[in-house]
Write a protein that binds this DNA or RNA. Structure first.
Lengths: 191, 191
DNA sequence: CATTATGGTATCGAGACGATACTACCATTG
DNA sequence: CAATGGTAGTATCGTCTCGATACCATAATG
């Protein structure tokens, strides 16, 4: 039991380490730091309520000062643009530029990762996905971090008529596309 | 297929991120950086041929300068000691002090990790271990990193008589305990 | 309104990390 | 034996991360 835990820890640690190294390598070619790539990646996945500095801050587990700094750099490099919220003037929305999207397409996932995935059998990759998802949820919970799940898996997501949804938390209508993105307000149904 | 890869990447990325955050949190209580904890952890796992600055460098995928710096800090904090090699005067061996071992016992794996493991069923944790090991090996290979496997799984490990082993690469006798540790010269049998 | 909370920025300092240069030692070859 | 090349390790420097703190603007609440 304790042994199992230690072994799992070693694998997980090592996996994290490899991801860090490979992110550093792939980013270095474009003069990008790992954290900057992570920010861009997040922006490509999150919905329109979560593309704010605070959303990024919560997702990556950093402080808002760090994120603000990182965004300044990304903006100077023209990978993102900021625009103010219509209703709340405190809030800024961060959007990927075309250059940012193109960059992401080129380097995420890194080639080494794609190659490793390609060598797994379908059963293996399915099993890996399932069990990673389970474990990740447990880890997020025991570390008091938000789940950032897909909108349609959220307890606040309510189906309206024909292909229309709404968020019961924010009281806002959602399109089908909306429900396919991750959200900082996400809460699982069954907790 | 491409979708699968992207999903696996997200899970893996997020897992790495959670590990980073939790390592930072747990280390902060003792004034330790994540990388310092990783070094201590490695030293507790590696064999007597691998407890050198270069071994750490290869394992963590850093440069030797960075590792040298980190070791200087850890030595000042009395978590490690250095001693010269008997045969090769260039080589330094790094040993954990009692304080270092105690610290590791206290904080690795972090409480959140242990708790998450405890919530998995036996089947789940077994599956996770298996599939993580497979995937990790693929990733290490596609990133041209060494496996750092357990000695007894190495192609150079030859069984002698009753409980005695030897390393065919270094031409050195090994005890049973020796074979249970990870080694920087490790090469899998079947490649 | 006054107070408090929230989103975001600015600034500073400790430390990570890579790059480079350097020393010391080993190994090989003529 | 030199001479040469390779390896282990250190020292130093600059860039960047990241947390801490202070601060400002806006929103929400009494």
């Amino acid at each position: 039991m304790g042994v199992k835990t230690n072994q799992l820890y070693d694998y997980t640690e090592r996996l994290s380490e490899v991801m860090r190294v490979s992110a550093r390598n792939v980013g270095a070619k474009y003069g990008l730091q790992p954290v900057q790539i992570q920010v861009l990646r997040y922006l490509s996945l999150c919905n329109r309520f979560s593309d704010t500095p605070m959303g990024i801050t919560e997702y990556l587990g950093l402080t808002k000062g760090t994120v603000s700094q990182t965004l300044k750099v990304l903006e100077k490099k023209d990978y993102i643009t900021k625009c103010a919220d219509d209703l709340d003037k405190r809030i800024a929305h961060i959007k990927l530029t075309q250059a940012g999207k193109g960059l992401l397409n080129d380097i995420v996932p890194p080639p080494g990762f794609k190659a490793a995935c390609a060598r797994l059998t379908d059963e293996q990759s399915a099993a890996l996905g399932d069990v990673l998802e389970q474990f990740l949820l447990q880890l997020l919970q025991t570390n008091s971090m938000k789940t950032f799940g897909l909108c349609y898996t959220c307890r606040y997501n309510k189906k309206q008529d024909a292909g229309n949804y709404m968020c019961a938390l924010l009281n806002i209508d959602l399109s089908l596309d909306d429900t396919q993105l991750i959200c900082r307000e996400h809460v699982l149904e069954h907790i």
